[in-house]
């Protein structure tokens, strides 16, 4: 294994890839919370009528691919992003980049990733890994959610890059263009942080409709209240279990990404020496705790310890409380960044 390559573990895969790709080009100021914040990673959406694995489709983060693209854009870093109709060309393109010593981000499906436990291998196609070399027939892989780097053989990697279904990667790979070390100044970093917060304020407060942003959290809360009657206790419990998975499963850093965002705001507060940002960070820290509390309550239902309508009402009220808290926090952030801190 390439001894110069330092594996970095992160909570979320895409954040981790961004951090590592930037670091491989000499940019060290961007750690995981920074990438997540500049990339406006925090989100909430609950898509009605769409079912994933027989449960409601909801997400606590932004669209896949957005964090990388936006972080690079806001930091003025040139990147390339490619998909290939022909798998053979996709493999050759990757090999060529690796030959030049370029670390490459690849979008993959997890169903065929042999280094993951089978319990985690659903048809989920928005996973991101770094390919950093090739030895014999195997690719050297750095999966940011894992503690250690690993390997995949040619056929396995190609299969994962051509997983099918929702978010099919179609061989999607991305990397930072050019060669040699890059640098960003503190001013550039500040500008990117402000842009990231502004964009996140827009996504969470002003997105139209009632299923996304802070309004989306209430939308789910409203639904939960009705699930016991509409679906029956068993199915309602399964739906709640699904929410817990989306919220707490590996990749979220805990509390539906809210702790990651709180960490980002803490770093932003230091960068701007701004007390108000410290307070905003505290609010998201609190939101993360509430999300975790709701997960405990939801587990009470699907483990059969809590089965009354009042239990569903309590969970629903928690979602309302979280929505209001995050709304207030983003309104405060909006004011802070408008005054340009």
């Amino acid at each position: 294994m390439d001894s110069k390559f330092e594996h970095i573990q992160s909570a979320h895969c895409e954040n981790g890839v961004v951090v590592k790709l930037l670091k491989s080009r000499g940019i060290t100021q961007i750690n995981e919370p920074m990438a997540f914040g500049i990339g406006s990673g925090l989100f909430y959406v609950h898509i009605p009528f769409l079912k994933l694995n027989n449960a409601p489709a909801l997400s606590f983060r932004t669209m896949p691919g957005r964090i990388f693209k936006q972080t690079c854009n806001f930091l003025d870093i040139d990147f390339a992003s490619k998909r290939f109709a022909n798998p053979r060309k996709a493999a050759a393109y990757l090999d060529n980049l690796l030959g030049q010593g370029i670390a490459v981000g690849c979008q993959v499906g997890v169903f065929n990733l042999s280094y993951l436990p089978v319990e985690y291998r659903f048809h989920f196609n928005a996973h991101n890994i770094i390919v950093f070399g090739k030895e014999g027939g195997s690719y050297l892989i750095s999966d940011p959610t894992m503690e250690a780097p690993t390997r995949l053989d040619e056929a396995e990697l190609l299969k994962a890059r051509y997983a099918r279904g929702l978010y099919a990667p179609k061989g999607h790979l991305y990397y930072i263009q050019g060669s040699g070390d890059l640098a960003i100044s503190e001013d550039e970093l500040r500008r990117a942080v402000l842009k990231g917060i502004k964009r996140n304020v827009r996504d969470m407060l002003y997105i139209p409709g009632n299923i996304a942003g802070v309004k989306g959290i209430k939308y789910t809360g409203n639904n939960i209240r009705k699930w016991r009657d509409e679906l029956g206790l068993r199915k309602a419990g399964r739906y709640l279990g699904h929410i817990v998975r989306m919220q707490e499963e590996i990749g979220t850093g805990g509390g539906g990404f809210r702790f990651l965002y709180a960490a980002f705001l803490q770093q932003a507060a230091e960068l701007f020496d701004n007390e108000q940002l410290v307070r905003a960070s505290e609010e998201f820290s609190h939101a993360g705790d509430l999300w975790r509390g709701s997960a405990v309550k939801m587990a009470g239902v699907f483990k059969g310890r809590a089965s009354e309508q009042s239990d569903f009402n309590e969970i629903s009220e928690l979602f309302y409380e979280i929505s209001d808290l995050e709304k207030g926090a983003f309104q405060r952030l909006s004011k802070i960044v408008k005054g340009n801190v």
Binding site: A11, T145, I250, G253, G254, F259
Partner: peptide
């Protein structure tokens, strides 16, 4: 966790 024996996961805390 089903990840036991494979990896521990990274989380954020104070």
């Amino acid at each position: 966790s089903a990840l036991n024996g494979y990896t521990r996961e990274l989380c954020y805390g104070k």
